[in-house]
Design a protein around this nucleic acid. Sequence first.
DNA 1: CCCAATTTGTTCGTATGTATC
DNA 2: AGATACATACGAACAAATTGG
Lengths: 259, 259
Amino acid sequence: MPKERERKTSLVEAVERLAPSRRVKRRPEEIGDRIKEYIRAERLIPGDRLPQERDLIEAFKAAKGTVREAMKALETQGLIFTRSGPGGGAFVARPSAQHAMELLSTHFFFDQPSLSDIYAIRKALEPEVAALLAGKVTTEQLIALEDTIRIYDHPPADLDEHYRQRVAELDFHAILARLCPNPLLGFLVGLTHNLLREHPAACRIYADPAPLSREEGLSFQYRLLAALKEGRGEDAHTIASEHMIFAERYMLGRAAALA
Amino acid sequence: MPKERERKTSLVEAVERLAPSRRVKRRPEEIGDRIKEYIRAERLIPGDRLPQERDLIEAFKAAKGTVREAMKALETQGLIFTRSGPGGGAFVARPSAQHAMELLSTHFFFDQPSLSDIYAIRKALEPEVAALLAGKVTTEQLIALEDTIRIYDHPPADLDEHYRQRVAELDFHAILARLCPNPLLGFLVGLTHNLLREHPAACRIYADPAPLSREEGLSFQYRLLAALKEGRGEDAHTIASEHMIFAERYMLGRAAALA
DNA sequence: CCCAATTTGTTCGTATGTATC
DNA sequence: AGATACATACGAACAAATTGG
């Protein structure tokens, strides 16, 4: 394994090259930053393997626990993951939108945005998603969307199905967000869905067997699907916008009724 | 210190109450989640102190290093911070938007959104900020905004001032985002600014002494300020929207010229 | 200014778990 | 099944930082 040796050497070199400014940070932070720089400098991509724990310990002249804390921080940031066993070690991770959204949800741990705060974003962004997607949805993707609608196109038999239907309605929009050609836009819209999913008021509404006007809600999604299929971007924008206004009014009304 | 004792007891109880499902997660993750639940259950708020390392070790029957890895993960998430020395320990942190955005920047480590991806968000969201803010900006806040404009209301003397002017232009919008009564909206808009600040193409544009049409850009901000002052929400929305369209066209044009 | 107490931060040696061959 | 290579967890000791006398 000469490749392994080269990499080891270059890590040590990289470490020694950037030697100064000791002790301005705590050791694990410093090591974590160095490893980040190393990933950049070596142009490592997701799936690539990092040096072994043992080698990192040697390169940084740090204890196992310290290196492990540094790796833990990188793992929490979603930058690496680890596997044990032979051939195991730390690997560069592929950034996952889900992981990033969970990180953000701890940011809203204390002051959660209100329902109308969230819907202000949805009203502004989801129409853009719809407009971007018009005429660009493949047949399979359309089928997936229709399958999702089918979950909630009929009255629920029990409370459990009722809940699953409400989740599926969010899923419909989440699928659109994932298909969005603008990854940032898709990410932000997905984030609003995540915030809704764990919003206390929204959870109460979803769990409550509400007298929702099924036809009115469904008609938006059917019309949206048709507009997407036929590439009518402006129509898709308008429909999505009306849908969001409708959904917000419904959610705020239910929240007031339950409170 | 009876308070300290109660808290300790309730941690142990909380740990033992939720005892099942061992070994589905790795130990530090499990401990980290438990501590999060503990923070929720005890209604701890930013500034409150968590149990000492020693007590956590005892409560979870784990080794010091394991607990430290768990705390490191929470610290990385921006949920806690630690101090050493007497009276030190782990404390619940106040969520910082800056920290959260830095976490996200590692998510866009590999595939950065394009300039037009970012401007698609800005075009949709910044007008909303402007509309929300109309008539709600205090005199001091208006002064701060005017001070920022004054940084770039005149031709730059040298390349360095030119760069600082471009940064100040973003700052103007960042100030508006911070003032935004919808914290989620403010956060997301601030995120787009952060993405721009570290976007390679945007950095090149900012560093380049470009022939920008100063008057046209400035007129947007003066008109916006007037609309905000006089509470004309719809006007503010329109002006911000036009400004974003103008800014995007400018940025895309410069990017093409530099590439 | 230093000394002592307290609490986190770091190190080391060892043992255990886990996946691969 | 057994050997190997790796991460994971443990426990005791020591170092550094911070506070108050």
